[in-house]
Design a binder for these strands. Sequence first.
DNA 1: CGCCTAACGTTAGACTCTCTAACGTTAGGA
DNA 2: TCCTAACGTTAGAGAGTCTAACGTTAGGCG
Lengths: 140, 140
Amino acid sequence: MEELPSWVLSQVSAQGHRIIVEKFGSVGARGYHYRLLRSLVTDGPASQAALGRRTGIYLSDLVGALNELESEGYVRRSPDPADRRRNVVGLTDRGRARAEELSERAHAVQEELLAPLSGPEREQFTGLLRRLLEHHRSGG
Amino acid sequence: MEELPSWVLSQVSAQGHRIIVEKFGSVGARGYHYRLLRSLVTDGPASQAALGRRTGIYLSDLVGALNELESEGYVRRSPDPADRRRNVVGLTDRGRARAEELSERAHAVQEELLAPLSGPEREQFTGLLRRLLEHHRSGG
DNA sequence: CGCCTAACGTTAGACTCTCTAACGTTAGGA
DNA sequence: TCCTAACGTTAGAGAGTCTAACGTTAGGCG
C-alpha cells in the first residue's frame, strides 16, 4: 500500500493557510476578501448568491465578509431593480485598488509556498492542483 | 503575471479537509487523532513535547487531543521516572487497532481526493507535496 | 549549594474557514 | 391564488492553527 499523502496534503495546506493568514493579515485582510474581490474583478458584479457559487463561499459567510469589505468602501451593495430579493455587489475604485494590492500579497504567498520547486515543477504542481479543484468542484 | 495558484491550493486543501472531517468524523475521530496515533505507531512512545514536534501539533492542542484518545483507551499517559516533568505517551492494544482503522479511513480519503489523477500523476503530486512539507517544516 | 533559565504540561482565548439550521422576504410556476 | 424555490441574513457549531500565561521540574552556572 502506498504511503498516505492525505495528511501530507493537510499539513502543506496548513502551511499555505498559515502564510495566507500572515501575509493577508498584515494588511488587515483575509482569504475570503481576496477571493471575493478577485471574482468581482474577473467576472464582474453579481448577486450575493451568484458570488457564493463563483467563489465557493457559503452565503452565510458571505454576509460577514461583504460587510467588512463594504464598511471599508471596497464594495457596494445595491438593490437589483429587476429582482428585489437580490443585492447586486459591485467594486468601487478603492476596491479595485485593494484587489490589486491583495493580488500582490497572493503572489508573495505563492512565492513563499512554492519556493522549493523549480519552474517546471511549479507548472506540474499547479496543473495537478487545478485538475483536482475542477473535479471536486463539479462532481462534489 | 502568472495565475495565482495559492488560492487554488487553499481550495483543494479545503476539499481535503472536508473529506477528512467527513471520513474521520463518521467514526468519531478527527485529523489530530490520526496524526498522533500514526506517529506513535511508526516512531514509538514519546513525551508530549516530542510528540508535538513530530506531528506539528501545538502542545496546547495536544493536551485536548490526548485527553480524547486517553478517555477512549487508545493511549496511555505514564509519568517519566527519569524526568518528572514528562508524560510518556504510549499506545494501548486498542490504540493500535484504532490506528489501523483510521489508516484505512485515510486511504479512503486519499482515494477520493486523488480520484481524477492517474497513478503516475499521483506519484508526481505526492512527491511534490512531500518536498513542500519537508521544506516548510525545517525552514519554517 | 542556590539561582536562573529553559523545558514541560496545562488552561484559556483568539482567529480563519467550513458547514448547518432557521427565519422573513420576494419571484415565479402550477 | 398558492406553493415552492431562491435570496439575504442571523446564529451557532466544529476543526485546525496560534499566542499568552501559569506552576512545576531539570539542568547549568556562578
